[in-house]
């Protein structure tokens, strides 16, 4: 029997919206894959691209960043910065040979427990299909 590949996903969730949304998924007893390790940040705009690279370096197969919907950021502009940073980082990661789908940015509000569960499910399956990260710089 072959062992199914279990991807390790690191999630950076913003304190005000998406972390609360994830909490809601938990308290609502919604099932989502245990493959995700969640790190709470104050804002999706806090997520330094170096965090993403470090996650891949240290064993992540995928990185999920969640923030407030556009217009709802607690700090007004933080999620807009993330909305620019992540696509540019994706473009650079593509040049580094890292497959589309390993880095994802999603908007999840505090009331969207179900959405969070769906997002994590989809991300886990997408990365499972991509396979282990196997990139360079892995420590």
């Amino acid at each position: 029997m072959s062992v199914r590949f279990e991807p390790r996903i690191v999630g950076f969730l913003c304190n005000w919206c998406s972390y609360s949304g994830a909490d809601l998924a938990g308290t609502s007893r919604l099932k989502y894959p245990p493959n995700i390790d969640i790190i709470r940040v104050m804002c999706s705009g806090r997520v330094d691209p170096q965090f993403v690279l470090k996650a891949f370096q240290k064993g992540a197969d995928g990185v999920l960043i969640c923030g407030c919907h556009p217009g709802d950021c607690h700090y007004a502009e933080g999620n807009y910065k993330a909305a620019r940073r992540v696509p540019l980082l994706k473009k650079m990661l593509a040049q580094m040979g890292i497959e589309e789908g390993r880095l994802q940015l999603e908007w999840v509000s505090a009331s969207e427990g179900e959405r969070f569960a769906t997002v994590v499910n989809e991300m886990t399956e997408r990365v499972r299909k991509l396979g282990p990260y196997n990139g360079n710089g892995r420590q």
């Binding site: 691209p49 170096q50 993403v52 556009p70 909305a83 940073r85 980082l89």
Partner: peptide, 20 residues
């Protein structure tokens, strides 16, 4: 204090760009 020059520069570029 910076581990990855390219990542930091990318972050700066995205931060200063105007457009939401």
């Amino acid at each position: 204090g910076v581990a990855d020059q390219g990542a930091k520069m990318l972050s700066a570029i995205a931060s200063i760009y105007q457009g939401d």
